[in-house]
């Protein structure tokens, strides 16, 4: 998997929700398309799981299905009481994974 893109505000306030945006390049092959040359189905290959942890604690997770478009983009809100590190993980059908980290600075 390619390097993901992650966006977290530079400074956040303790106890106040802030928006986190993540995007990763992935073809998200649905498994329903047919290869016109051979007539065979193109096997499903999607990111099926996304998890976000703040200092080890799960703060957001999503299970993805074949209807999700290529290059999935997710935006969600997180609350932090103190500065820490967000860790993101994407998993696809092949067992391949990608990770990214971002610092959260609470002021």
């Amino acid at each position: 998997m390619d390097k993901p893109r992650v966006k977290v505000p530079k400074k956040v306030k303790a106890g106040e929700p802030f928006e986190v945006k993540v995007l990763i390049s992935h073809k998200m092959e649905s498994g329903q398309r047919v290869d016109e040359a051979t007539g065979n189905k193109i096997p499903r290959m999607i990111i099926n799981r996304f998890e976000a942890r703040l200092d080890g604690e799960m703060v957001f997770s999503a299970t993805l299905y074949p209807a999700v478009s290529a290059n999935p983009y997710l935006a969600f809100y997180v609350v932090a009481e103190q500065s820490g590190e967000l860790e993101f993980k994407w998993l696809d059908d092949s067992g391949d994974s990608a990770t990214a980290k971002a610092k959260v600075a609470v002021s």
Binding site: R5, K7, K21, L23, S25, A70, N71, Y73
Partner: peptide
């Protein structure tokens, strides 16, 4: 620009 997949 973050959401725009073309930037990839």
């Amino acid at each position: 620009d973050f959401e725009n997949g073309g930037l990839l």
